[in-house]
Design a protein around this nucleic acid. Sequence first.
RNA 1: UGGCCCGUAGUUCAACUGGUUAGAACGUCGGACUUUGACUCCGGAUGUUGCAGGUUCGAGUCCUGCCGGGCCAGCCA
Length: 571
Amino acid sequence: MEAEPNDNEGGRVTSNSGTDFIRELIQSDADHGPYGGRVQTRFPPEPNGFLHIGHAKSICLNFGVAAEHGGRTVLRFDDTNPETEDERYVAAIREDLAWLGFEPSEVVYASDYFDQLHRWAVQLIEQGLAYVDDQDAETISENRGGFTTPGVDSPWRDRSVDENRDLFERMTAGEFGEGQRVLRAKIDMNHENMQMRDPVMYRIRNQHHFRTGDSWVIYPTYDWAHGQSDAIEGTTHSLCTLEFDSHRPLYDWFHGALGLGDDRPRQTEFARLNLTHTVLSKRRLLQLVDDGHVDGWDDARMPTVRGLRRRGYPAQAIRDFCGHIGIARVNGTHEIELLESFVRRQHNATALRRMAVLDPLEVVITNWPDGQTDTREAINNPEDDTAGVREVPFSGRLFIERDDFMLDPPSKFFRLAPGREVRLRAGYFITCNDVETGPDGEVIRLICTYDPETAGGQAPDGRKVKATIHWVAAETALDVKVELYERLFTEALPGADGADPMASLNPDSRLTRTAKAEPALADIAPGEVVQFERLGYFARDLDDDPNTSPTRFHRTVGLRDEWANIQKRQG
RNA sequence: UGGCCCGUAGUUCAACUGGUUAGAACGUCGGACUUUGACUCCGGAUGUUGCAGGUUCGAGUCCUGCCGGGCCAGCCA
């Protein structure tokens, strides 16, 4: 693995260093670990929500490291809690995973292992390492103790093996109500690690499970199901986020108690992804949806895979980002700008160019032959010779961007102003001779002339212009709805210092405009991303009717904008 | 309050496991180029490696103590 830092060959970007502590561990295990060179990972989502960019990091890691060693990655749905889980999430997760570009070696469910888990639970009971507790949830919680106070043994902790076995079978058979009894591991109520104070293995839930139906009324907890599922599948490296660090001793304890061999799975934790100006917790995302701050899980402002997809973020850019940010044990927050830079890099190479005007200002060309329409040829993508050219209609009445004109421009402003000449991209040079203003002094129309000698954009006399601006011919313009997005949260770290994250929700995170666009925009398919010249990348809505002219675009990300920086600096 | 994890440019990560002047990306600033103020190219700035001691010829790396942040007391995952 001699990857150069930030190697961008073939459009694939490697991580900062090309390696990380997890890859080093796996390499070492592959060389002389207990797995005989085998590497197997798993991605274990709970089917109760949609995948987001944080999951993408985990997916890239799990699938990435396995692939690097010719290993396998299992997609395992962690369906141990029928309360919130549902089939529809399974479908969505599989779809998102495929869109991200990953194919699992196998698709399984923790519920596939319910029989085995149950047999193992009985085994632990017989070994005297698990017991049925009759205490209710509140009492169990009280008796668990605190960080500085030891726990109190349950009065049912020393039941006989026979009684435990009998009670557990009756739990399984549905003789008791929810919350009446649980199965607990018998470890140490005085352990300094709270996870080891006799954790619950099974609880009673009289609920219909979307896969096992009504055949079970007891369901394994995460701690009991997860590590054992890993073991059943032959996972070698169980990679999870930092908050499970304190669960690792328990993860290992179960395997040890069951007498698993040295080739049992090992858990390694890494930092979850955080991104500025957004939230990534399931709870917060749900809140955004439920409170109607966004249209749904697939709203283009959501950091969900579906949201990013609608927004026009390419899977490749997401993968490159995940590969680049690396893996560490430090809980940090990545700047969303980094993700955006990968999105731009990708689209710059591949996106077709089109012209659209978001805030139209009318331009009348006084020396243009009345009623005549000309056709200009424009390059589809200067970064890609194979993308070809297209025809753009030109006429005596045009729209340009309101921002591209100033009545009284500062010295740094290069664009159009009274008496100034600029180039219309792929068109002609035009000069502004006069300005029509409305009652409040606002500019409503520019009176210009064009230079017929500058067709194609070059002046035969060699004179230069300081700016090239985009434009659209009025008569042939398409009206399209364009969604402009700003940060979902104004604060870089919503909820920092204990604040309510929702307090920094940006009320103007979406701005809808009706843009004037050139006719060739009709060539763009739903889901496809184009560059509106000088403005940014825009994705045609996925649900737009492919048989009609485009009606809706989402701004994926703006272009880098030096002029905006200059303005910002000068206040 | 106890235990565990973690502190390296603004941000995220490197630093060949104790060895020369601590690097890169994104961001930022300046310049070149330009029919996108984009892209590309060149260059600059930003570090008391959290702090204080210690070991050593030599410490970002090892040790001790502080400080700061995160996680843990669900029958959630």
